[in-house]
């Protein structure tokens, strides 16, 4: 079953690489608060406020 051991090693290395990539992206996100292409901030809070006007 040495192939299974090799496989588990590969899996652990893959997940560790993933965490390293995610860490660098997270620091980039934290360093620049303006980079956000995904949400334009129309939430339920603002919608209720606009309805109550």
């Amino acid at each position: 079953m040495s192939s299974m051991g090799t496989l588990m090693g590969i899996e652990v290395i893959i997940v560790i690489i993933g965490y390293i990539v995610a860490y660098y992206v997270y620091t980039a996100v934290l360093a620049n608060e303006d980079i956000d292409a995904s949400s334009d901030g129309a939430g339920i809070a603002r919608l209720f406020k606009e309805q109550l006007k």
Binding site: V21, A22, Y26, D36, S39, G41, G43, A45
Partner: peptide, 15 residues
């Protein structure tokens, strides 16, 4: 739904 920023989800997506 709440309208918060999605960029904190970026590292979670990568993981």
């Amino acid at each position: 739904i709440v309208g918060a920023k999605l960029n904190v989800m970026a590292p979670i997506a990568i993981v």
